[in-house]
Design a protein around this nucleic acid. Structure first.
Lengths: 340, 340
DNA sequence: CTGAAAGCGCTTACAG
DNA sequence: CTGAAAGCGCTTACAG
């Protein structure tokens, strides 16, 4: 029972052997006599020795850890992704540093560089910033990065995206197929890659159906309660209102539902991103689902592939599919109330 | 542009100064001539040098990182807690290793000891295991641990809990106040501390009201869809069924709502734990809310307080309050259907 | 089968 | 104002 942590040196001294012999026993390298092994193990047990992995890894030139930069750890999308990354990392005996950029480019950079300063073996980033040039020296120095959900800006790197445009198009096609001609789009801030990609899918769907694109039916803004309330009122008000809404992401959908709960007649609705309880609400909420766990898994596998070999190959982009899940809200015809 | 990372030695060589001088400049220690400082900075810039924090911290005997052991990073409770821990850690220039025990004692132990092997400065643990004796050597060696949501077993350590019994009692009192006499309790597995504490609160409330405790109205089991379906059918079936349900946690509540969605008449319902969309459902779901972010914040603050001084003081337990949020489902009198 | 020396990339304690 | 030496706790490369 020492108060400080015993080291290999302490073990060696107690066992009366050289440092290297302790190292051999700890690493199970064999070629140590049974007698010596026993003495070393006894000393280890007596002192409660546990090897300092950080010191070992410093010598080996890696840290067996990766850095995961999220928008917000607390977000369901981020946390599902985190769990998937964790599970892959565990398979590679690697630990995960996780942190939130809070959708702030400066904070993303600070956090990412803090991870690099700890010499994480690699990075998985849900980017928020307007440039990732700051990563060039790190990547060049041998710290690979994989981007998820949004592509990096100004640099080339492995990326995992979903088919945002195709997913959005599927959502709007679905509403059109159910008779809607006036369809609103409520998206996140236009600085966010996925928001504009989904807007593009929305427009493509309208165009394919020969429907006009009417800017007064769209809104691209951070999904605060206030902003969403105004947007919903604008899009559902006026002389020729929308009869259906396409919500650009999870947080938009939830805020929209909150606003709609207080209104008499309800538009049809499809949301991008699935969410817990979407099936319990009445009507069930039709969504275009992406799979954050699959995104995390894919990104982590790409990263560990880089770490164990293919470090110089060209950057790859994987685009995962989305899936339409009809639950009721997206299948309502024009002018039918949602029913309380 | 070297392919490997430049070190202080490389910088010193290029600048034509000693290693220590580079260290001084990097640390802004002053007492370096302007001329020398400039040469060193030029070399740093030219080489793209970035100090290896891991090496620095090894020498300093700490890692400026903490380990966070959760039940499941992807769970909303865990992820809200994680974000709060992250924010406090950032204030202390510390990074966070996060990982999931998956409610498995063995995995909890492996993960926790992996963090200790990296010599994290401290631990925050949502415990799953049946004993934490394995932590004694680590704590003795100077790695403090703070437990959250559930107390440690077999050891003494700082702990952050909520008033589970009081919260449960508040929930059941509320249902009783609305006229209910037959109230079901659907809780998680009895091995989970919070499940039995909430059962105790349920029983205390019944007893205070002079109502009998009827085991046929209760269920304590992991909240799989299957188990919950059976439990709901049992508690709401039979000759003298429950008219109200108290759900022991988030996941139970969600599964119960899923089951109830397919049934004709609906019991009153109060859930322990708040959740997104509880206010959007019709009726709104009345809950006893705890504050996972506050729990994380409190735990992190206790940990950093230990790290910056009070290492030997007696273990403290903080018990945070819960809060009843009436939204409709908990205020329904007997025999009134929930509406669609 | 065993160990002394050098090194991972830094800082600390000393000496000038 | 500056730097050589020793050290953080391990492993690597060598030598016996």
């Amino acid at each position: 029972m020492m108060s400080a942590r015993p080291t290999m040196k302490d073990v060696a001294a107690l066992a009366g052997v050289g440092l290297k012999t302790v190292s051999r026993v700890v690493n199970g390298e064999g070629s140590v006599s049974p007698d010596t092994t026993e003495r070393v193990n006894a000393a280890i047990a007596k002192l409660g020795f546990r090897r300092n992995e950080g010191a070992r890894l410093l010598r080996q030139g890696r840290t067996a850890s990766i850095g995961l930069v999220l928008e917000d750890v607390a977000d369901p999308f981020s946390s599902a992704l985190t769990r998937a990354v964790e599970d892959i990392a565990r398979q590679h005996d690697s630990l995960v540093f996780a942190g939130s950029s809070a959708e702030d480019g400066v904070r993303e950079r600070e956090l990412t560089l803090a991870f690099c300063a700890r010499r994480v073996d690699g990075l998985i980033i849900v980017p928020a910033g307007a440039t990732h040039r700051y990563l060039v020296p790190e990547i060049t120095a041998g710290t690979p990065a994989v981007f998820v959900d949004r592509p990096p800006v100004d640099i080339d790197a492995d990326t995992v995206l979903v088919d945002n445009e195709g997913g959005a198009r599927m959502a709007v096609d679905h509403l059109i197929a159910h008779g809607h001609r006036r369809i609103g789009f409520l998206g996140d801030a236009p600085t966010i890659f996925t928001a504009t990609a989904r807007l593009a899918g929305y427009r493509a769907s309208l165009e394919a159906a020969g429907l006009p694109y009417d800017e007064s039916l769209t809104s691209l803004a951070p999904p605060t309660a206030e902003a969403i309330r105004h947007a919903v009122e604008r899009v559902l008000g006026g002389p020729d209102p929308a009869t259906a809404l396409f919500c650009g992401n999870n947080r938009v959908t939830v805020e929209v539902l909150r606003v709609l709960a207080g209104r008499p007649n309800q538009p049809a609705l499809v949301g991008f991103d699935d969410f817990e309880l979407a099936d319990v609400l009445r009507p069930g909420i039709t969504v275009v689902a992406q799979d954050p766990a699959e995104m995390g898994r894919t990104a982590a596998e790409m990263l560990f592939a880089r770490l164990s070999g293919d470090r110089q190959g060209r950057a790859k982009t994987v685009r995962l599919p989305t899936r339409l899940i009809p639950r009721g809200s997206g299948e309502m015809p024009i002018a039918t109330g949602i029913g309380t």
